[in-house]
């Protein structure tokens, strides 16, 4: 059998495929963070909590209203985005002119409250969300069996990532957004409602997290802690990619998923720190991140 570094090739291919799956989750989550940081300068520590709330919204929708997966994919992110918009209007808005640490503390508090409420209501061990009928079953790739659902996750998140990138970097709306963050007063002078734009941006970033949550719901236990275990990794991804860089967040997300996948074969014990080792190295070598501007 062909081997690479003493590991059989099929195993490597299998792990790379899984790495791609995880990487697309990272990409989708770090994208939302990067959008929020890039445009609002808020370090959104509640991102993991919104991801968790997205998954729970899908679960509650199914249990309470029999809402199916496809509808949840649309409605859960909308509901969470709305919650995000309310939080932005009521609290975050007051912090834009202050030191970024205040935004971080506020969102961190929001995350703790959200986790606490869900834990109180649903318990720590979480709930099961079924894989939708249409996506049940597996692809046999020869070197591994890939559940159809995981393939769908990759396709869906990469599509959403590409669309978001296009929206911000290539459309008039995106240009207005970027301009608003550069010089809000000037943009406002052109008759554009900047505060509304910022609310919508935070809502959209949070909605992306919730979308990732719905995508994750059938794969992992829907539990109050599901976000807190991811958010730190996702922050590392954003830092490595360059704070605020959209394309950096997407590419780094996928790349780190792949690297983490390989680590799981070579030295599994290090799989949850490899991302941080890379972050440290990148910060030494390029303090602004791989795609960040100095």
């Amino acid at each position: 059998m062909t081997t690479v570094f003493g590991v059989p090739l099929p195993a490597i291919l299998g792990q790379l495929t899984l790495g791609l799956v995880n990487g697309s989750f990272y990409a989708l989550l770090s994208l939302g963070l990067a959008v929020i940081f890039g445009l609002l300068r808020i370090v959104n520590f509640a991102h993991g909590a919104f991801y968790m709330l997205g998954a729970f919204a899908a679960y509650i929708g199914l249990q309470a209203f029999g809402m199916n997966y496809w509808l949840a994919l649309l409605l859960a992110p909308l509901a969470v985005a709305l919650l995000g918009a309310v939080i932005e209007r009521l609290f975050l808005r007051r912090l834009y002119r202050l030191d970024p640490i205040y935004g971080l503390l506020l969102t961190f508090g929001v995350a703790l409250i959200a986790e606490g409420i869900m834990r109180n209501r649903f318990g720590a061990s979480g709930k099961s969300y079924p894989v939708p009928h249409l996506l049940q079953g597996v692809f046999d790739l020869g070197f591994m069996v890939l559940p159809i659902y995981r393939a769908w996750v990759v396709a869906a998140s990469l599509t959403v990532c590409a669309a978001t990138w296009f929206l911000i970097e290539r459309t008039r709306l995106g240009a207005t957004l970027r301009a608003a963050t550069q010089n809000a007063r000037l943009v406002q002078a052109f008759g554009i409602n900047v505060p509304l734009l910022l609310t919508a941006t935070y809502g959209a970033g949070v909605g992306l997290a919730a979308l990732a949550g719905v995508l994750a719901a059938p794969v992992v236990q829907v539990s109050p802690l599901m976000g807190s275990s991811l958010v730190i990794v996702v922050f590392a991804v954003v830092v490595i990619g360059g704070m605020g860089s959209i394309i950096g967040a997407i590419l780094t997300g996928v790349l780190l998923g792949l690297i983490e996948g390989l680590t799981k074969v070579v030295y599994p014990e290090a799989s949850n720190i490899v991302v941080f080792v890379i972050m440290a190295l990148v910060l030494i070598w390029r303090p602004a991140g791989l795609f960040g501007r100095e």
């Binding site: 299998g14 792990q15 992992v220 799981k264 799989s271």
Partner: peptide
């Protein structure tokens, strides 16, 4: 590591070993 959410990589390794039994020496989530 404790608190891992994605076990798929480890499971593929388990499967590749050809063992009959998958012993789960862990707990909780």
């Amino acid at each position: 590591p404790l608190g891992t959410t994605d076990f798929s990589s480890f499971l593929l390794q388990a499967q590749a070993s050809g063992a009959q039994v998958l012993g789960l020496a862990n707990a909780g989530t």
